[in-house]
Design a protein around this nucleic acid. Structure first.
Length: 242
RNA sequence: GCUUUAUAGUUUCCGCG
C-alpha cells in the first residue's frame, strides 16, 4: 500500500526502493511475488542492477529452486558475482552436497572472482555440517593465507562443531582464540558455547557465560533462555528452570 | 555532504527418513 501511495504522490520508486521491496518479499518466501515485481519494474523503465537480481537469486536458492535461479541469471545476463555464488554454495552446503559446493567454489576462482570471508565461512559451515573438520580447517587456513581475517561467525562455526562433537575444551579454545584476536563475541557466539556447556552438563559454566555475556553488554534472547531452560530441565532441575 | 537494497553461524518444538 505504501509503495503504491508513493507512486500516487508522484514519487517514483528507484532501483533501491524496488530492490528493498523485492528482497523483503524473498525473505518472506514470497518468491513468485518477488519475481513478478522484478519483471514489473523493468516495465516501468527501471533497470535491474546486480543487487536486485542477486537478491532474487538468493531467495530462489534458499527454497531450492536452483534451476529457476539459473534461468533468471541467464535472462538478465548477470555477470557472476560472489553474492550469487555464495547463495548457490550455501544451498549446496545446507544440503550436505559438498562436492557441488567445492566445484562451484573452484569454478568461481577460475572466473577470477576472489572468495571473501563470507564464502570461506560458508564452505567451513558445510564441511562442519558433514563432520569434515579437516576440510573446514583447510578452508580456514586458505582464508588466512589469502589475507582474509576470520570473523566471529567463522569461529562460531568451529565452536559449534566442537560443542556438537562433545569436545568442549576445543570449543573453549576456539572461543578464547577469537577473543585473543581482538574479535568481540556476539550473542550467537555466546549462545553456541552455552549450548555446548548445557548439553555436556556443565551448568555452572553455562551460568558463568550468561554473566559474562551480560557484563559484555549483550541482552540474552529467547534462544539463550531456551538453551538454559532446556539444559536444566533435561537434568531434572525444574525449580531452577522456573 | 548524508541515507536506504543482495551472500555465512546458535536453541527448542514439529515433520520426514
Amino acid at each position: 500500500k505504501l509503495f503504491m501511495r508513493m507512486q500516487q504522490h508522484g514519487i517514483s520508486p528507484d532501483v533501491v526502493a524496488y530492490t528493498t521491496f523485492i528482497d523483503s518479499l524473498c525473505k518472506m518466501s514470497l518468491l513468485s511475488e518477488a519475481v513478478s515485481l522484478m519483471f514489473k519494474m523493468t516495465q516501468f523503465g527501471i533497470s535491474l542492477d546486480s543487487v536486485s537480481v542477486s537478491s532474487v537469486i538468493d531467495g530462489l536458492c534458499k527454497v531450492g529452486k536452483m534451476d529457476k535461479a539459473v534461468s533468471i541469471l541467464e535472462i538478465f545476463n548477470l555477470p557472476p558475482n560472489i553474492y550469487v555464488y555464495n547463495s548457490f554454495i550455501s544451498k549446496f552446503c545446507a544440503d550436505g552436497n559438498m562436492a557441488a559446493a567445492f566445484n562451484s567454489f573452484h569454478e568461481m576462482s577460475e572466473l577470477g572472482l576472489c572468495a571473501d570471508c563470507f564464502l570461506y565461512t560458508t564452505m567451513m559451515s558445510g564441511y562442519c555440517k558433514i563432520r569434515e573438520i579437516n576440510m573446514a580447517c583447510c578452508f580456514l587456513g586458505k582464508m588466512i593465507k589469502g589475507g582474509i581475517e576470520p570473523s566471529v561467525t567463522t569461529y562460531t562455526i568451529l565452536v559449534d562443531y566442537y560443542c556438537k562433537s562433545r569436545e568442549v575444551e576445543n570449543a573453549e579454545y576456539i572461543f578464547q582464540k577469537m577473543i585473543s584476536e581482538g574479535l568481540v563475541p556476539d550473542l550467537v557466539a555466546y549462545n553456541t558455547l552455552m549450548d555446548g556447556y548445557g548439553k555436556q552438563g556443565f551448568l555452572h559454566k553455562a551460568f558463568g557465560l550468561l554473566d559474562m555475556m551480560k557484563s559484555a553488554g549483550h541482552s540474552p534472547d529467547n534462544i539463550t533462555y531456551n538453551t538454559i531452560i532446556h539444559s536444566l530441565m533435561v537434568r531434572g532441575f525444574v525449580t531452577e528452570a522456573k
